[in-house]
Design a protein around this nucleic acid. Structure first.
Lengths: 249, 249
DNA sequence: TACTTTCTCGTACATCGTACGGAACAAATG
DNA sequence: CATTTGTTCCGTACGATGTACGAGAAAGTA
């Protein structure tokens, strides 16, 4: 009665799975490998974004007919799942040393670095079978940062979710600017230059006492530096302070 | 030399802008209004998601030819910008009372409620001209929660970014489950039922001492209750504790 | 009535994911 | 060697998508 197991699951774990004689002996030889396809897809998505990744374009890049891709991958959605696990597996995870602050900072920085290098990760919606080996390894590594510090199991998961989610949001804010610059062909500064007058007129009809002051302060600071550590700093400091307060009680 | 101002900007502020005689007197009468179009688009996106929102489908819903939409809106991307501002304007913002904790909790809860009611907000990438009147009002309201508590301007912006980003991430996690259930036609429980065996076999080749324990604990708690307040609770408590520690120093 | 202005929308095109089915190939079998 | 069987390759085709283009329809003005 229960449905068949998800075939993409075996594909995800293809490298850790023992080759239990399932390698076909007869039949035509594949021109490329699943890893070739996924690696090329990652390369294209890194360059042009996830939306611009098309099966036809990928096929040409790999040197194969468009429909041939479907012998390697069940479809575009499943390809994205494989891309996520593959790209997560590339980063090497440094050993967990130092105190809790240092360890969680490391978790956040690795997460930020991944999302900066592969912004399309932010566009990947919730797909079920994210449970690839590399994602699982990453999760285990992240959890090791908070193991034994006094949190219960649920709190450990929530802490990792909180920290990695925040790092992803920092990357998201950065990426939003880059994307609109690319899509509109205008620098952020150019847009403001062109629209300052109209915006001032339009906003003159309402009062924004706080937002006017804070927004311009944030805008200036934002334009000043793009140091990822700095952008992480404030939020992460608050989160870590709060966590220590929770543990020290 | 500077480019023309963004026409969508005037469209965003169409309600606060005085009708400076720009209302056309001659010519054929429009069958519908911009608000009709945007409201219908929101309705469709609420039901089927942002990806499923097509210009043709929207046109049929509004009772208009597909290409007629382009008299009201510059294109699909600009439509989404209008949808965001329109939907943000619907929520009524309660007055800011109570202490800092209560106020920021309110900010987070409103943010979560919006994203739960309109999950497609999570799929809206960074578009430049988010500066609609309702988004501006919302930002002003959010900032009023931390005005005068001892933060400098930059920290005020970062605090709001931190809190609202966290609330959005909670909504994102919820939405990911709903989406995959809809797209795959399988309940989360059904998927695990069908894939438990295969997953166990596949993961038996590696050791996940912490993730195995924590993951199942989180899974059980996750399946138990879906109270949004509970899901907000832990992370928000940490953030607020950390913020108070920062201010009390 | 004729002209001008504005909105309406049918047609067309490029691009997308992918269903389908036969051709091409490699090993096993006779 | 000839045939069968299993596997991969991929050309063609279909339905959707966003939207450029331009002709037609309606409403006010002269």
């Amino acid at each position: 009665m229960s449905a068949d197991p998800d075939p993409t699951l075996r594909l995800l774990w293809r490298h850790v799975l023992p080759s239990d004689g399932t390698a076909p002996k007869r039949g035509r030889r594949p021109k490329v490998s699943v890893d070739d396809v996924v690696d090329a897809a990652i390369e294209l998505a890194d360059r042009d974004g996830l939306d611009a990744l098309s099966m036809r374009g990928l096929a040409e890049r790999v040197g194969v007919g468009a429909m041939s891709l479907y012998t390697y991958v069940a479809g575009r959605d499943d390809l994205v799942v494989l891309m996520v696990d593959q790209v997560v597996g590339r980063a090497d995870l440094p050993p967990m040393t130092g105190d809790l602050r240092a360890r969680l900072t490391l978790v956040a920085e690795v997460q930020l670095a991944d999302h900066r290098a592969h912004p399309w990760l932010l566009d990947v919606g919730g797909v079920r079978a994210w449970l690839g080996p590399n994602v699982a390894d990453r999760y285990e590594w992240q959890l090791s940062a908070v193991e034994g510090v006094g949190l219960d199991d649920l709190e450990m998961d929530q802490t990792i979710t909180l920290v990695t989610g925040f790092a992803a949001n920092v990357a998201r804010a950065e990426h939003a600017v880059r994307r609109t610059e690319r899509e509109s062909g205008m620098t952020d500064a150019e847009w403001w230059e062109a629209n300052y007058e109209a915006l001032a007129e339009v906003m003159s009809h309402r009062e924004y006492p706080i937002a006017g002051r804070v927004g311009s302060a944030a805008g200036e600071a934002y334009q000043a530096g793009r140091d990822p550590r700095r952008e992480l700093e404030f939020g992460l400091a608050r989160i870590l302070d709060g966590l220590e307060a929770h543990l020290g009680r």
